[in-house]
Nucleic acid binder design. Structure first.
Lengths: 355, 355
DNA sequence: CTGAAAGCGCTTACAG
DNA sequence: CTGAAAGCGCTTACAG
């Protein structure tokens, strides 16, 4: 059995395809009565226009692409599923679809974007985890293709984004530590090509400056966004002669590693050394002890991103869609007052791995 | 500047569009020399066929859809990102794309599948988390549309799937407990419309039977796939007069809840009560104590699913692609011998929540 | 081995 | 208000 197409529908109505098409698309120059007649016949015959043909004729894809971020620790990618859900929801209200793209490196990613955009297979793009200088953003910007960014790059004046105020979040975290009498606050930074890593580091430095605490580069380590990197960076800081009394991590994943580093040195998180992460991963509720963190509002970021993109595709001005949300302090169990006097000595021991 | 299309390329070569098209598609009846000449010109002019036009002409979408599973606890969805990565990788080797679909209920999901398949927008479907009786599978089966399933439904004889031997995994887990002298082994089951929940429960029952331990329905609770549900189910079992000495959970997420239930009762996991989860979530490494679990090999399940689907779309027989992998026992810290004599008394205390 | 033509299923100026 | 025609950019029998 053949799916009913425009031709069949038109013949059945004794109208031309053009008239039927215009009726279905609510052209005002078609009489109300025929519009109604056509609509009813279409429903009765189960007609739905072929999107491929429509796409070819109009040049509009009605599809949006999401660029999957590079693989990191695996764990930090827990935001992807809810994000896709959210984007998908806002698109589906219009009958649009969501395409997912992924590549091993930035070059391939741009090639993929070029292919998808120039072939008109997509109408817009959602990007995650931008770099400070992001060639993907540059590409989309220069080609003048509709896009929104989940996060921000350095120059974010002229495009649409949805971001959390990373700087404010880290200033907030440092101030909470200072209020608890911490003075030697270590920072485990992220790779600085990521804008969020840069912003969080700036928030850290700012808060110190505002409270008259000298910035000590010996207390700052840059590490990859993995547990292992977090662990070894934390280890290096903790093994100094004058170790920090508190550790601020750029991501929860790093903080998990830091937790391990503390455990190996028999240091009690929240007593001997305070620890604050960032992300608000659900995991943190179950760590030993539960991880204090700055949580981002990821509930409906996906929905918002989708809505913003649709508005832009409809002709909206990208700069009208720049939203800065704020992170919430989630006080679990790894934050406490700075310990008085000298810290107890460090002794590392080996721990059995998994079997 | 206009993207070069077939017409421009043909004119430039003084050939007809048909000839150029056939040359590019390696038709053997085009002379080798012109095939080469055309290929070179296409490269030089940066020609790439418009997929939409191609799709309309051939009826082949060169796109595969992945159906996002319903939202659960959020945490159990950590398998989605690597899965999408894997599927995307195998598709991209052929230049195909990956579409993502999601809906609030099964009915909408089928409507979406019907729309995508009948409009020829996709060439195949990947499905996750099938139900025992899965109407989506029935739909794809009866319409004879290419698909692969990540998991299995009850009647899985006639389609392609990639699954883990859930039954064997739970038999294995129970036997490990029995070897450690556990006799009262509790099961926190999952909703039984999920095939994997059913299979795991069967593995549990089988192992008991094989070792001459009577099945005690008072030790079995069915719970949703969330932490909360896991916690309350575990609580009910632990609060019985004759509580189990070990708890087997259908998912790690449930096991996290069970861990909370134990903590609230001052029971030490792995000493007072043993606990085994299922999934191998990375989270489990950081729980207090680290969670013993059966880990599924999710490394390249995505890749395999993609490859299988492509093979089927190419005309392969679905039943040739049925892969049963096995789960790995990951011994962390919540498994120990059954405690001797009477268990210490339970005393619940309230715990402060997050702020 | 290549050309000429029809067709995939829509949309949209242009007439009348 | 509706019809007739061209066009979107490909592919593929059918001739020759």
């Amino acid at each position: 059995m053949q799916r009913t197409n425009l031709k069949m529908l038109a013949e059945h109505l004794s109208l031309t395809q053009g008239t039927v098409s215009r009726a279905l698309n609510e052209y005002p120059d078609i009489s109300k009565s025929t519009r109604k007649r056509v609509r009813e016949a279409a429903n009765a015959m189960g007609y739905a226009p072929n999107p491929t043909a429509r796409r070819l004729a109009t040049g509009v894809a009605e599809v949006v692409a999401y660029v999957l971020p590079e693989r990191h620790s695996g764990m930090s990618e827990s935001f992807i599923a809810p994000l896709l859900q959210g984007i998908g929801e806002s698109l589906s209200e219009r009958g649009w679809d969501l395409l997912v793209t992924q590549a091993r490196n930035t070059e391939d990613e741009i090639a993929a974007l070029r292919r998808l955009t120039t072939s008109r297979q997509i109408s817009g793009v959602v990007l995650s985890r931008p770099h400070k200088k992001d060639p993907r953003i540059d590409f989309l910007r220069t080609t003048n293709f509709p896009f929104v960014v989940h996060g921000r790059s350095d120059d974010c004046d002229d495009y649409a984004w949805y971001d959390v105020d990373n700087k404010a979040a880290f200033t907030d975290a440092v101030e909470r530590l200072i209020k608890l009498r911490h003075r030697r606050i270590g920072l485990i930074g992220g790779p600085l090509h990521f804008s969020f890593a840069q912003m969080r580091a700036e928030g850290y430095a700012d808060a110190l400056a505002q409270h008259g605490i000298a910035f000590d580069s010996a207390l700052v380590k840059t590490a990859a966004l993995s547990e292992e990197a977090g662990e070894s960076a934390a280890g290096e800081l903790l093994d100094r002669k004058h170790p920090p009394t508190a550790l601020l991590c750029t991501t929860d994943t790093q903080a998990l590693g830091a937790l391990t580093a503390l455990r190996r040195r028999d240091l009690i998180p929240g007593e001997d050394v305070s620890l604050i992460g960032y992300d608000g991963l659900a995991i943190g509720r179950h760590t030993n002890p539960p991880l204090t963190t700055m949580a981002q509002p990821q509930a409906d970021s996906g929905r918002r991103l989708g809505e913003m993109l649709l508005a832009i595709i409809d002709g909206g001005t990208p700069t009208d869609f720049q939203e800065l949300h704020s992170a919430d302090f989630l006080n679990r169990k790894t934050l406490g007052p700075a310990p008085e006097g000298k810290r107890k000595t460090t002794n590392k021991d080996t721990e059995k791995g998994e079997d």
